[in-house]
């Protein structure tokens, strides 16, 4: 009753035969063996029933929206990963603009002060000439 083909490491031949995945030459050899081996014959009969049972289990169709949902997630993740970079760039830009503006306003104050000084100097000249 015990056949060397019915072990953990050798039964793959029987499983492949049962699944129709054995090449023609090996399948013919196995068929001859099965004719005289009750154990292998019983194994194959049982395995055929398992295959038949598993074949009745159909997976439901995939949702039509599968691809759309996936692309949405991909876009969202790309957008999400871009947010910190964009935020950093924005902070740098705001800092630059603010710094530039404060430099500009300081220059304007200096210019006004110099102009006032010049006017005062001119007035002093005018007073001196009048005397």
């Amino acid at each position: 009753m015990n056949c060397p083909l019915l072990s953990e490491q050798t039964s793959d031949v029987l499983l492949d035969y049962s699944a129709g995945r054995l090449d023609a030459a090996r399948a013919t050899t196995l068929q001859k063996h099965v004719l005289v081996c009750d154990a292998c014959s019983a194994f194959l009969a049982g395995q055929a029933e398992v295959w038949a049972a598993l074949d009745t289990w159909k997976a439901p169709p995939v949702s039509i929206s599968f691809n759309r949902r996936l692309w949405q997630k991909l876009r969202f993740r790309i957008w999400k990963s871009a947010v910190p970079v964009a935020a950093a760039a924005l902070i740098i830009m705001i800092g630059f603009v603010y710094d530039h503006k404060s430099q500009k306003s300081q220059m304007e104050i200096d210019q006004v002060e110099r102009t006032l000084d010049d006017i005062q100097l001119l007035r002093q000249f005018d007073v001196a000439r009048a005397l």
């Binding site: 953990e8 038949a52 049972a53 598993l54």
Partner: peptide, 22 residues
């Protein structure tokens, strides 16, 4: 070799549980 063992044992269980169905 481990996969062969896994499949051997799995199908053994399935044959015992499902063979009557067909």
């Amino acid at each position: 070799s481990a996969v062969k063992s896994l499949l051997f044992r799995a199908y053994e269980t399935l044959r015992a549980r499902l063979a009557h169905m067909v």
